[in-house]
Write a protein that binds this DNA or RNA. Structure first.
Length: 127
DNA sequence: ATTCTGACA
DNA sequence: TGTCAGGA
């Protein structure tokens, strides 16, 4: 498939897909006219990449970890493994921070519901 | 109509 | 990353 279809199937823009390729994250062949051609398996790969980016991993880190995604079992480099463990720990810390922020918002919400009740009737409320 | 590379707000 | 230029 060409870049447009991959973009539609993954929700990742063609611009980002070209960027992913520059970073060595995705592979493509070229048509006679120079257009990128992707294997159907790249869809799942791109989805994983996008999720890692969303989770805060850098393109550099993602590139280091991706080989493990393909191999699944075999040659897992040591630095790749330690990188994954480190990123997992960072995500755990990020999650904890997000929960704290949500708790803070919950308190703010609880402290302000009464005002909303006074201002609006039939309000579905925040909880 | 779609994609490509390079470059910049 | 979005978007425009200038080509294929």
């Amino acid at each position: 498939m060409r870049i447009g279809e991959l973009a539609r199937q993954t929700g990742v823009s063609a611009r980002s897909l070209r960027y992913y390729e520059q970073q060595g994250l995705v592979h493509s062949t070229r048509s006679a006219g120079g257009q990128r051609l992707y294997a159907a398996t790249e869809v799942a790969r791109v989805e994983i990449i996008r999720r890692l980016f969303d989770a805060g991993l850098s393109s550099k880190v993602i590139a280091r970890v991706l080989p493990c995604v393909d191999s699944g079992t075999a040659d897992v480099t040591e630095d790749a493994f330690t990188t994954m463990v480190g990123e997992r720990d960072r995500l755990t810390a990020d999650i904890a921070r997000l929960v704290e922020t949500r708790d803070a918002l919950d308190e703010l919400i609880a402290a302000n519901v009464r005002h909303q009740i006074g201002l609006r009737r039939g309000d579905r409320g925040a909880g």
